[in-house]
Amino acid sequence: MSEREIHHTLTVPETLVPEDLQRNALLTSVDSVYNWARRRSMWPLTFGLACCALEMIAAGAARYDYGRLGMDIPFSSPRQSDLLIISGTITHKMAPQLIRLWNQMPEPKYSIAMGACTVSGGTFDSYAVVQGAAELIPVDIYLPGCPPRPEALIYAFTKLHEMVGQQSVKTVSWYRKEGEA
């Protein structure tokens, strides 16, 4: 496999662990186990919006199989899933449901905006369509394409895994009370 010369703009915020703590062997190993577990068992929510959903299904089927990454249990309840793949055009009619599903998911949760429509509204510059999923919920990874190839979706997963791998139990926001730094 050839090395990619041009690595595109994936900027992950640097870890906020203080320097003396970074050498703490226990903390780093806890972190690595914690992050490994979340990477290798990231259950997606069964949620398809439009044509990108077909490509998402294809990525889960035999030819591309994202089950290899430990994602092969698409849960239909948001309470049990970790990853929301927003696959397709978000109409204003569907926006409340999307927000509701996102709010029902327990932390730690991640989201991927898949396809041009969810990144920026895409081809539907119209009164009926939300211009990008970022208007509704926080998005971790934006994946352009109309629709993206199944390989591209799995590429987005690997980039999300990289992002998860750089988080630390000490600094993640979801184990803190509201308002804590």
Binding site: R4, E5, I6, H8, T9, L10, T11, V12, V119, S120, G132, A134, V139, D140, I141, Y142, L143, P144, G145, P148, R149, E151, A152, Y155, A156, K159, M163
Partner: peptide, 23 residues
């Protein structure tokens, strides 16, 4: 086809597109 970003605005400029064209 492998392009992702953590921001909504992902752009390519002339040099990057030329390099992609070479490849």
């Amino acid at each position: 086809y492998e392009f992702v970003s953590t921001t909504q605005d992902q752009t390519l400029n002339l040099e990057e597109m030329l390099a992609l064209g070479d490849r």
